[in-house]
Design a protein around this nucleic acid. Structure first.
Lengths: 157, 157
DNA sequence: TTAAGATAGTCTCATTTGCAACCATCTAAA
DNA sequence: TTTAGATGGTTGCAAATGAGACTATCTTAA
C-alpha cells in the first residue's frame, strides 16, 4: 500500500486550515462586535444581497443548518441588527434585511475582514492567488457547492 | 467601499468546502467503521507514524483540543483499536499505538479515503492539483500550521 | 533537597450544534 | 374542495466540543 501521509491529505488540510483561518477572523467579528459565526454569516449574506432574502436562502447558500440560522436570526433581531417582514407571497417565510444599524456594522466590519484575508493570502503571489481561487472554484462546482449564474443552485431552491 | 462578495471570500469558501469534503469522507469512516472525526484523527496519526506517540502529540499536530483527543483515545481503547502503555521516561504521558485490529482497520480504510480524495480532486488537472497543494502548503506555513522536517513544530513541543 | 512553574492527561461544566418533531402554510393532484 | 405531501421556520433534546480546573509528574533553579 502507498504510504498514507495525513499531512498531505487534502481533506485533513482543508479542515485544519479552515479552522485556523476562522479563528484568525473571529477576532474581528467575535471580539469586536460580539457576533458568532452563524450570526456573521447571516449579516454577510444580507449585506451582500441588495434585496431581502429568507432564512432558508441563507441556510442553503452558507451550508449552515436551518436551526442554527434560525437562532442567529433571533439573536440579531433582538440586537436590532436585522429586520424581518412578512412575505406577502408566502406567509410561512419572512423577508430578512439589514437594519440601518446592521448596515453600519457591516460597512465597518467588511474592510477589516478583507484586510485579514489579504494578510492570510499575502504569502502567495498574485498569480498563485488567482490560481488558488480558480482551483477552489472548480472543486466547489464539482461538489455542487455553488449557485449558477441565475443565483439558484440547481434544484435546491 | 469595494463590494464584498461572500462567495468570493476565501475564509468562507474554505469553511464551506472543508465541511462538505468532511461530510463526503465521513461516509467511509463514520458509517462503515463507526468512527467519529476525532477518533479517525487519532487512528490516522497513529497509523501514519511508525513509532508510538502521545495524546499531546496527536492533539498538537491535528489541531484538536486535548480533551477531545482524550475522549477519542478512551473510546478507541474500549474498542481495542489502539493500545496504551506507560512511558518509562515520563509517567504523566502514555505511548499510544495501533493494535493489530486497529492496524487492519487502518489498512482497509486508507485506500477508501484516498480514493475519495482522488474523486474530489479529479476536477483538477495534475498540474492544478500540484499547484493547489503547493498553495495550501504556503498558507499553512505562513500560519505556522506545519511541523518542520524534524517532526516538531517550532517551539510547540 | 525544596519550591515554582511547566506539562500530560482526565474530568466537569457550559456552550454550541445538529437532529427531528412540530406547526403553519403552500402546492398539486384527485 | 379536499387531501397528501412538500416547505419555511421554531423549538426541545441530546450529542459533541472547548474551556478550564484539577491531579500527577517532570524540570529547573535556588
Amino acid at each position: 500500500m502507498a504510504k498514507f501521509d495525513l499531512f498531505q491529505f487534502v481533506p485533513f488540510r482543508l479542515n485544519r486550515l479552515a479552522a485556523e483561518v476562522s479563528a484568525a477572523l473571529s477576532d474581528e467579528y467575535q471580539v469586536r462586535y460580539g457576533l458568532d459565526i452563524p450570526e456573521w454569516r447571516v449579516i454577510a449574506t444580507l449585506g451582500f444581497r441588495d434585496d431581502a432574502c429568507s432564512a432558508q436562502f441563507i441556510s442553503q447558500c452558507t451550508r449552515t443548518h436551518k436551526s442554527t440560522i434560525s437562532r442567529a436570526v433571533t439573536a440579531l433581531l433582538e440586537r436590532e441588527l436585522i429586520e424581518r417582514v412578512e412575505n406577502e407571497d408566502d406567509r410561512r417565510a419572512f423577508e430578512l434585511r439589514l437594519s440601518a444599524k446592521g448596515h453600519t456594522l457591516y460597512e465597518e466590519l467588511i474592510p477589516r475582514l478583507l484586510h485579514k484575508e489579504r494578510d492570510i493570502l499575502s504569502c502567495l503571489t498574485a498569480q498563485e492567488r488567482k490560481d488558488f481561487a480558480a482551483a477552489l472554484g472548480k472543486i466547489e462546482r464539482s461538489l455542487d457547492l455553488v449557485q449558477t449564474r441565475h443565483g439558484q443552485k440547481a434544484g435546491a431552491y
